[in-house]
Write a protein that binds this DNA or RNA. Structure first.
Length: 499
RNA sequence: GACCCGUUAGCUCAGUCGGUAGAGCAACUCCCUUUUAAGGAGUGGGCCCUAGGUUCGAAUCCUAGACGGGUCACCA
């Protein structure tokens, strides 16, 4: 039974004792009080005053009881609200008759939410405190809080009971406040530039827009399988066909893959599409976005991330795909540009390979293995090979490469953008070779044929550039967190075991 | 999916060579009217993650499993 624990039983008893005294432990009539921060700011002048108090000013503060120190006929307590902690002082003679001994001392406990009414004064040790004339229960907590000094350390409990983590570990709340500010700044940035926020389907008939394994679900009325979206890309581009010239969507994607420090099965991305622009302008827009975020959030451009110092000064460095493999990865040009030599190199170095891999896939392995982790300061890698970029526009200068870039920071991919492929015949052929890759190399993450999308392109999509940014990873960077679970409120967990 | 580590009171953690369970905080009973992780005296609280095995005897050793954390693989 959920309430069988001895501590909970004791607290339920106290809750009932409150009822017996005619006090509802869960009243519904309490209105929000003054924030502790405002109380402390408004009354700080008392510290310089002779008598250290102002009995004429009455404040009503509400918060969760975090500490209580009973000293016979007087007590100190600290309550915490959304703005922080504040100290309260009670004593027997200044509260209603008998209330101190029978209610405050006996029935109020750490964890309860209480309302305190009184006037400000400064204690002997100089702490601004509320001298209480009245105290009421706002909400009784029947489960005890974790230990006051060490808080909640157990990672499992912190994720499963995030609300407890937030009550006890105040920096957790700060991280998620920061997350909210980041997302809201990004939204404002695009709105200010006349991008339209849209919502496209989360349940797709064909999983598309990325190479990933989808979650499958079933629609009873239609009698068909649906796939939770792995990316919104193909729907957003349909909107460009329809005549919207700048759109963005901030929302969840779902990928049925492993869970680790940088992967959660549901994660948030922003994708934005910008008609009559190219991937070059997209890189500039991305730099503007970072400038805007750092400015709005008052972050230092020399950002500390773990043991790295990352310099976000714009413009970011740009390196071509091939140069990255050769110069940053330290692979010879021969190996990096020749399929046979590349394949031999992979075999000789015990790296992953497949006999059917085209040069682009081999280069991707070389890039991931040798270059990616070295890209600490923000760097745009450009000109990706065509075979690993099935939705990107072919370069007019070199048919083997695409007008695509990825942004790497702290050795991790943060953004992926390109001039969009708008030639329906080319797109059809690219889907076909993806389907082929699925069959030949058993690449079960290769894309499906989406003929409805090809049909949309056949009506004509204006030249457009589009980009996706992983919001969770961006937030990890900006909040110096090293696991995605620390920036997702309720990260994916296995069901709790019976034992 | 592989390997390593962890799981003991509500929380944070000890637990030696295998000898039958401990501390601090929290709780309960007292004392205490300016405390700061308040202090003092006392009391209660355990499916040592689960199931097997070894042993006279297992929190401790072995096997399997559950959950969590980490590394790798996967996720271009």
């Amino acid at each position: 039974m959920i309430f069988k624990n001895q501590y909970i039983q004791e607290r339920i008893k106290k809750s009932n004792q409150l009822r017996e005294l005619g006090i509802n432990p869960y009243p519904n009539s309490i209105k929000k009080g003054t924030l502790s921060k405002d109380f402390l700011t408004e009354c700080s002048y008392l510290k310089d005053r002779e008598d250290k108090k102002d009995e004429k000013k009455i404040y009503r503060l509400i918060g969760r009881l975090k500490f209580i120190r009973i000293m016979g006929r007087a007590s100190f307590a600290k309550i915490e609200d959304s703005s922080g902690l504040v100290q309260l002082y009670f004593n027997r003679d200044d509260l209603p008759d008998g209330y101190y001994n029978s209610v405050v001392k006996k029935l109020f406990e750490v964890g309860d939410i209480i309302e305190a009414v009184g006037y400000p004064f400064v204690t002997g040790t100089g702490e601004l405190t509320l001298y209480c004339k009245e105290v009421n229960i706002v909400t009784k907590a029947i489960s005890p809080l974790p230990e006051k000094f060490h808080g909640l350390q157990d990672q499992e409990l912190r994720y499963r009971q995030r609300y407890l983590d937030m009550i006890v570990n105040s920096e957790v709340k700060d991280t998620f406040i920061m997350r909210s500010k980041i997302v809201s700044s990004i939204r404002r940035f695009f709105e200010d530039r006349e991008f339209l926020e849209v919502e496209t389907p989360m349940m797709h008939p064909i999983p598309g827009g990325a190479n990933a394994k989808p979650f499958t679900t079933y629609h009873n009325a239609l009698g068909v399988d649906r796939y939770l979206r792995i990316a919104p890309e193909l729907y957003l581009k349909r909107l460009i066909v329809g005549g919207m010239e700048a759109v963005f969507e901030i929302n969840r994607n779902f990928r049925n893959e492993g869970i680790d420090a940088t992967h959660n099965p549901e994660f948030t991305s922003i994708e934005f599409y910008w008609a009559y622009h190219t991937y070059i302008e997209l890189m500039e827009l991305t730099e503007e976005l970072f400038d805007y975020l750092f400015d709005n959030l008052n972050l230092d451009k020399k950002l500390i991330y773990g043991d790295m110092e990352i310099d976000f000064t714009t413009p970011f460095k740009r390196v071509s795909w091939i140069d990255a493999i050769i110069e940053i990865g330290g692979i010879s040009r021969d190996i990096a540009t020749d399929r046979e030599k590349g394949l031999t190199f992979l075999k000789e170095n015990n790296l992953k390979y497949d006999e059917n891999w085209t040069l682009g896939y081999i280069q991707a392995e070389l890039f991931d293995e040798f270059a990616e982790s070295k890209l600490i300061n923000p760097t745009f890698i450009t000109d990706y090979p065509i075979d690993i970029s099935p939705l990107a526009r072919r370069s007019d200068k070199n048919p083997d490469i695409t007008e695509r870039f990825e942004l790497f920071i702290a050795g991790k991919e943060i953004a992926n953008g390109f001039s969009e492929l708008n030639d329906p015949i080319d797109q059809y052929e690219r889907f076909k070779s993806q389907v082929n890759a699925k069959e030949v190399t058993g690449d079960d993450e290769a894309m499906h044929m989406d003929s409805d999308f090809v049909k949309a392109l056949s009506y004509g999509m204006t030249p457009t550039a589009g980009e996706g940014i992983g919001i969770d990873r961006l937030i990890m960077l900006l909040t110096n967190k090293h696991t995605i679970r620390d920036v997702i409120l309720f990260p994916a967990m296995r069901p709790e075991s019976e034992n």
